[in-house]
Design a protein around this nucleic acid. Structure first.
Lengths: 140, 140
DNA sequence: CTCACTGCAAAGGTTTTGCAGTGGG
DNA sequence: CCCACTGCAAAACCTTTGCAGTGAG
C-alpha cells in the first residue's frame, strides 16, 4: 500500500516531473486497473476518488507519462487508446472482436527471441523491443 | 495489371459480396498504397480516380473487407486505423513516434514460432495467429 | 425484381487545444 | 516567485449511422 505509493511518487519524480495529486491518481489508476485500461476507464476510476480532476488533465497526464516512458500506449484495433503500466517484457493475448487483452509472460520465449535476434540481423533496422500479438480464442 | 484486377474481383466475389466499382477501387487502393495506408490515405487515393465515391462508402467498404478477412486492421498506437492487404504471415517493424510500418518476412522465424507454440500450451487460450511487433529504429 | 450497396449529411464519440488560474519546487 | 501544471469548455478529428435512392445479380 504505502510501498506502492512510494513507487508511484518516485516514478514521477525520477523523470523530473512535478508531483501533483492528479498525476498520482492517474498512475495509481493504471496500476489498479490491471487489464490495459482505456482512457474512459481511467477517467471513471480517477473521478470516483476525486471528481475535481478534469478529463483534459487526465489526457494530458497520460500523454506526459507515455513521453516519459512511465507507461505505454497499447496498440489496439478498437479505435480507442489503452494503456499499459508494465515495463517488463511481455506479450499480449487478444481475441478478435473482444476488448479483452491479457498479458502473457514467458521467459523461455523471451530468451528464444532475444537469442534469435542477436544472431539474425534485420537489414536497415535496429531492434529495441519485441512484443508478440497472439490472436486466438479465450477458452472457458 | 489485368491479373491484379482479376485477383481483386475474384477476392470480392469469392466471399459472396456484390462486385461494385467502389469496392474494386478501395481494394485496389490498399494494394497500391503499400505501406499500410490509413483510412485518410485510402480515401484520398480512391477519390483521385473517382471523386464520386463517398467517404461513408469507403468506411463501410473497409469494414466489410475486414469482416470478410480480405484485409486486416493494423493495430496502431497512433489513434487512426490502418489497413493491411497482405494475408501471408508476416511481422511489423515500427519506429516509435513514426507512422512508418514495414513488413518483415522471415520464414525461419515463422517456423521457430510455430514449432514453439505447437509444443507450448498457453493455459486458457487457443492460438490462431502470431504477429511480432518489433520496435526499434530504421537505419539510414 | 429485390435486396445489398451507395451517397449524403448529420450525429456520435474520442482526443486535443487555448487560456486563465493555481500550486509545487 | 516562476513556470509547469490544472480546469474548463470549445474545437477538432475520426468514424458511424440513418435514410432515400441505385444497381448488381
Amino acid at each position: 500500500m504505502d510501498t506502492l505509493k512510494i513507487n508511484i511518487t518516485e516514478e514521477i519524480k525520477n523523470k523530473g516531473l512535478k508531483l501533483t495529486s492528479q498525476r498520482i491518481e492517474v498512475l495509481k489508476a493504471i496500476y489498479d486497473l490491471e487489464n490495459h485500461p482505456s482512457t474512459e476507464e481511467i477517467i471513471k476510476y480517477v473521478q470516483e476518488n476525486n471528481p475535481a480532476i478534469s478529463q483534459g488533465t487526465i489526457y494530458k497526464t497520460l500523454e506526459t507519462f507515455v513521453e516519459n516512458k512511465i507507461i505505454s500506449k497499447v496498440e489496439t484495433s478498437g479505435g480507442v487508446f489503452r494503456y499499459d503500466g508494465i515495463t517488463k517484457m511481455h506479450h499480449h493475448l487478444q481475441e478478435e472482436g473482444s476488448p479483452r487483452i491479457d498479458d502473457y509472460y514467458d521467459e523461455e520465449l523471451n530468451n528464444l527471441l532475444i537469442d534469435y535476434f542477436s544472431k539474425k540481423d534485420i537489414p536497415g533496422f535496429e531492434v529495441h523491443d519485441i512484443k508478440l500479438h497472439i490472436k486466438g480464442k479465450f477458452k472457458k
